[in-house]
């Protein structure tokens, strides 16, 4: 039997699976879904990797992906979580960055090789774009967020940490 769906269809379905903590960014834009393939018999393979190794939402995200595949009548699928390819904040798409900013979360700056953590001290404020900001603490309400303060608009804000 030839499957009625292609990889592109699966990608469209999965584009609706959002990060449970940041419900405006899809797992594809976040870079958590690494690879999707459909074989000749219609079996769907999805490779995922967590942002942070200890991310408690990983199981939940995997189940969401499986649910979406089931909802679209995919009978045969395999969703794998591994560290074979390691997530970095550079993997967040431009689309994802724009969504983060709109959500009030400063997107992580893109970096080359190793992120210099001094960049944490002048993160542009997601509300007023000022870089007159300081890092309050590299640890925030979730593993992937740091906390900052903007001296221009006098508001606290969070950043998705560069990793």
């Amino acid at each position: 039997m030839v499957s009625t769906y292609q990889k592109e269809d699966v990608l469209l379905w999965l584009a609706e699976v959002m990060d449970p903590e940041i419900p405006v960014v899809s797992l594809i834009d976040l870079g958590v879904i690494r690879e999707v393939s459909v074989d000749a018999k219609g079996k769907v393979m999805v490779e995922m990797t967590p942002t942070f190794v200890g991310c408690p939402a990983m199981d939940y995200m995997k189940k969401e992906v499986e649910q979406v595949l089931t909802d679209h009548q995919v009978k045969d699928f395999e969703v794998n979580v591994s560290f074979e390819s390691q997530w970095s904040s550079n993997d967040i798409t431009d689309n994802g960055r724009a969504a983060l900013k709109k959500f009030g979360l400063a997107p992580p700056p893109k970096y080359q090789l190793i992120p210099d953590l001094e960049i944490l001290d002048q993160v542009p404020c997601p509300y007023c774009d000022s870089d007159n900001t300081t890092l309050n603490t590299p640890f925030g309400p979730t593993l992937c967020r740091s906390m900052h303060y903007c001296h221009n608009c006098k508001q606290a804000f969070e950043q998705f940490k560069p990793l």
């Binding site: 942070f52 991310c55 408690p56 603490t137 640890f139 925030g140 906390m147």
Partner: peptide, 20 residues
């Protein structure tokens, strides 16, 4: 408060890393 969150966050990281 920040230290409370930092140690809690690092606890979550470390236990998650031990699981891996």
């Amino acid at each position: 408060l920040e230290e409370d969150i930092a140690f809690s966050s690092m606890a979550q990281d470390k236990i998650g890393q031990s699981l891996a």
